[in-house]
Simulated assay, not measured.
Amino acid sequence: MTGTLARADVVSAASPKRRRRAPGWLAVVPLLAFIAVAFGVPALAMLNGAFTVKDQATGATSYSTANMTASLDGAYLTALAGSVKLSAVCAFLGALLGLPLAQAVVSSRSRALREAVLTASGVLANFGGVPLAFAFVATLGNAGVLTRRLGLGEKGWNLYSFGGLVLVYLYFLIPLMVLTITPALEGLRTQWREAARNNGATGVQYWRHVALPVLAPSLLGGLVLLFGSAFAAYATAAAMVGSSVPLVTLQIADAISGNVLVGQENVALALSLDMVLVAGAVMAVYLPLQRRSARWLDA
């Protein structure tokens, strides 16, 4: 009788552990299923279409690298290079202008100002597409309010160019940089500045030898994030510049709609795969930098 009770106690003591483990595993299943459906199925369809070639005469399909080869040649390669160039320029300028703005917000003693700037940055970082393009066209376009009032047209200003597109992209990339780098700036310890000052370091020396090395992973991570955001943007450029600035997203839209050649849908999928590969390379750089910067913030 005593042995039976002892075994019952052991079973009752072990069963709660088994009951706690099962719900923890089952809770992940819906997330994995959602990822598989929302991301896995489109990715497989894109991968299959990128390597599928259709004979226009017979309608027969076969697997080949012809679409990938075409996506890296001629106008398609020019568009891919244009997107990379635009994204790199926008990321560099966004980081260069966003860092001092974020530092001014962090060092401000006004809590209301800080909250207002961060709230506005959160809104502006997600403001894009056709409304943003229309706002700039109405303001700085050929017949825009400021263009006519300041005589910018006579001075050579052209919104529908590479430089104009950079200006528009900076409208939402600078606020994004502010949101990205602010937590890292808040992680800078006051003791570090005081220790540098006590050892005779100037403000420039503090930033050069202490602050910037600590912020380097976050800065590089912000650069990568801005690059990815500019690289994937489509609606703003499509509504504002059309085909005057070669971009890979615009080439994908033209290939799908048949504006260039009929039957180029699979080339569009190959271009999309090129974008995925570039985005994957970007994320491969961003994630280690994000983990490294998190160590300083958690310290």
Rank of each mutant, 00 (worst) to 15 (best):
G98V: 13
L101V: 13
S12D: 07
V210M: 08
L225T: 12
R295D: 09
W25R: 12
Q56M: 09
L271T: 04
Q251E: 14
L188V: 07
K17N: 11
F39Q: 14
G263T: 12
N126W: 04
Q205K: 04
A133F: 03
V282A: 15
R208G: 12
T190C: 01
G74T: 04
S71P: 00
S243L: 14
L219V: 14
A230F: 03
P175R: 05
V241H: 03
D298S: 01
L173H: 04
A143S: 13
S121A: 15
A75L: 11
W25Q: 09
D254N: 15
P30W: 10
L250W: 02
P246Q: 06
M46A: 15
A230Q: 03
V37G: 11
L179F: 06
A81T: 02
A237E: 02
Y286A: 12
G128D: 00
A102Y: 05
P42V: 12
V28P: 02
A253P: 05
P30G: 11
V37A: 14
M275D: 01
L250F: 07
P213Q: 10
Y160E: 11
T182S: 10
S257E: 13
L173C: 08
D298I: 00
R21Y: 04
L113H: 08
A14P: 05
M177G: 04
A211K: 06
